[in-house]
Amino acid sequence: MEKLEEKLGYTFRDRSLLENALTHSSYANENKSLGLQSNERLEFLGDSVLGMVTADYLFRTHPDLPEGDLTRTRAALVCEGSLVEVAHQLELGSYLKLGKGEDAGGGRERPSIVADAVEAVLAAVYLDGGIGSARKIIQKFILDREEEKGGSRDYKTALQELVQRESGQVLTYRLIGSNGPDHAKVFQVEVDLNGAPVGGGEGHSKKEAEQNAAKAAIEKLSH
């Protein structure tokens, strides 16, 4: 736990909050005699804390962005793919308490499980140290990282706006393949413009693959 706290840059006064954040429902169900609570309630709270801090940050740092752009940017920042990256950075999967079946089935790498755990940890920090402590961690692992990348964008919308400069343009996204085990599947998507491929991308979800394909298409069409 100390290593995880070091990575977070936060030391818990009440360590049981962190223990709770790392307890998956499968573990709690298999160990009912211990009276453990799963991290699902913390995940619910963490989702709201993350959304509020991100919305506040975008509102203050992008005074000229309209509501629609703010909404899309926030969605990209707090999406599952973004949280999975944070989980990998923290090596959060190795700290999770999982039921035997979930653990054997690759639960420590399952995107939905580790993303939910990130939200639960954020809620634990919020309850232990207040909104300021939670804000620092969100800033460090999500907001600052996206700034380094040049900001988060909804590439599908940006591509649509790019091709609509000429009338009669038709974009279609096609799933062309997938590989890997169920808990860590990677999808490949191709985006076509008027039936001709203009970009391809991969991702742990079809949405993420589509966004990466759209990004590749923008780069190709803009040159």
Rank of each mutant, 00 (worst) to 15 (best):
E2F: 07
K3C: 08
K3H: 12
E5L: 06
L8M: 11
L8E: 09
G9P: 11
Y10F: 15
D14Y: 06
S26Y: 04
A28C: 09
L34R: 15
R41I: 08
R41T: 10
E43F: 12
E43T: 15
D47M: 13
V49F: 08
Y57E: 13
L58C: 06
R60S: 14
R60A: 14
T61L: 03
P63D: 09
D64Y: 00
E67M: 00
G68R: 00
T73D: 00
S82W: 01
S82R: 03
H88N: 13
Q89K: 12
Q89A: 12
L90Y: 03
L92A: 05
L98F: 04
G101Q: 12
G101R: 11
G107S: 06
R108V: 06
R110T: 08
R110H: 11
E119M: 11
V121P: 01
A123N: 10
A123C: 10
L127A: 05
S133K: 10
K136R: 14
I142N: 02
L143C: 03
R145A: 06
K149P: 00
L162S: 07
S167Y: 10
S167H: 11
G168V: 08
L171D: 12
L171N: 11
G177C: 11
G180L: 13
A184H: 14
V186S: 10
F187R: 01
E190P: 07
E190A: 15
L193C: 12
G195P: 08
P197H: 11
V198T: 09
G203H: 01
H204F: 08
S205K: 03
S205D: 03
K207T: 05
N212G: 02
N212K: 11
K215V: 07
K215G: 06
K215R: 15
I218A: 04
K220H: 14
L221D: 10
H223G: 15
